[in-house]
């Protein structure tokens, strides 16, 4: 069995049984192959090394992201490894933004330190101090950028460095199966069918 066959079989298994594996394979071979490709792009190990951020910067980024999507009873941005995403994309697909991002991060740190002389870095502050400070700066471009990156790091393909163990997708209830059949949700499960209106134009 070649790699292609293995890939196809793994995808079909992941797709569940309701659609009928044989039926899918018979009718949509190219579909299955393409969807398998999409499915497998979501897997892969996360590289837990920093390519751009210093350790201190990484701690601040992780702390900010953890206030944007907190953990607690269920995982949040920290558990999803958003900080690795932020680091990796600025050394990769968003490399063009890296200098501006680092400048924003530095300015964030300096402003926080100025306002909290006894604390040092944002990451060292207690939660209430962090939240109060973020409320004060939530209208700034840097906070907007951090929110944008946190959401991307939470929900983009794990191959970008975040969404570790698909934590982000679990938060939002997204299942990366890429192949579905009705019913899709609770409300369409017992839909009786479209009832025509009494007065309608004839075709």
């Amino acid at each position: 069995m070649g790699a292609e066959d293995t890939s196809r079989r793994r995808f079909l298994q992941a797709s569940g049984s309701t659609l009928g594996v044989a039926w899918v394979a018979l009718h949509w071979p190219q579909v299955v192959e393409a969807a398998a490709h999409a499915h497998e792009a979501a897997t892969g190990s996360v590289d837990h090394t920093f390519k751009l951020l210093t350790a201190s910067q990484a701690r601040d980024v992780e702390a900010i992201a953890s206030q944007i999507v907190p953990g607690g009873a269920t995982p949040g941005a920290r558990e999803a490894g958003v900080v690795y995403f932020v680091d990796h994309v600025h050394a990769g697909v968003y490399e063009r933004n890296a200098a501006a991002f680092l400048a924003g991060l530095t300015a964030f740190h300096e402003d926080f330190a100025r306002r909290h002389p006894g604390v040092g870095r944002f990451a060292d502050a207690d939660a209430s101090t962090q939240i109060a400070y973020l409320k004060a700066v939530e209208g700034t471009p840097f906070f907007g950028q951090m929110r944008f990156l946190t959401v991307l790091g939470l929900l983009s393909l794990p191959s970008y460095g975040g969404n570790g163990n698909k934590v982000g997708w679990k938060i939002v209830g997204f299942v990366d199966r890429h192949l579905w059949e009705p019913p899709f949700g609770h409300y369409d499960a017992d839909y009786p069918g479209f009832e025509p209106y009494a007065k309608q134009r004839q075709s």
Binding site: I68, P70, T74, G76, V151, L152, L155, I171, G173
Partner: peptide, 28 residues
């Protein structure tokens, strides 16, 4: 899709923090 909904659908008062996360969990 999930990213765009998370970025753009929440109202400003639920754009981050615990309220934001509860909204994300309500996406289904």
């Amino acid at each position: 899709n999930p990213i765009a909904w998370s970025l753009f659908a929440p109202p400003p008062e639920r754009a981050w923090g615990a309220e934001f996360k509860s909204l994300l969990e309500a996406m289904p």
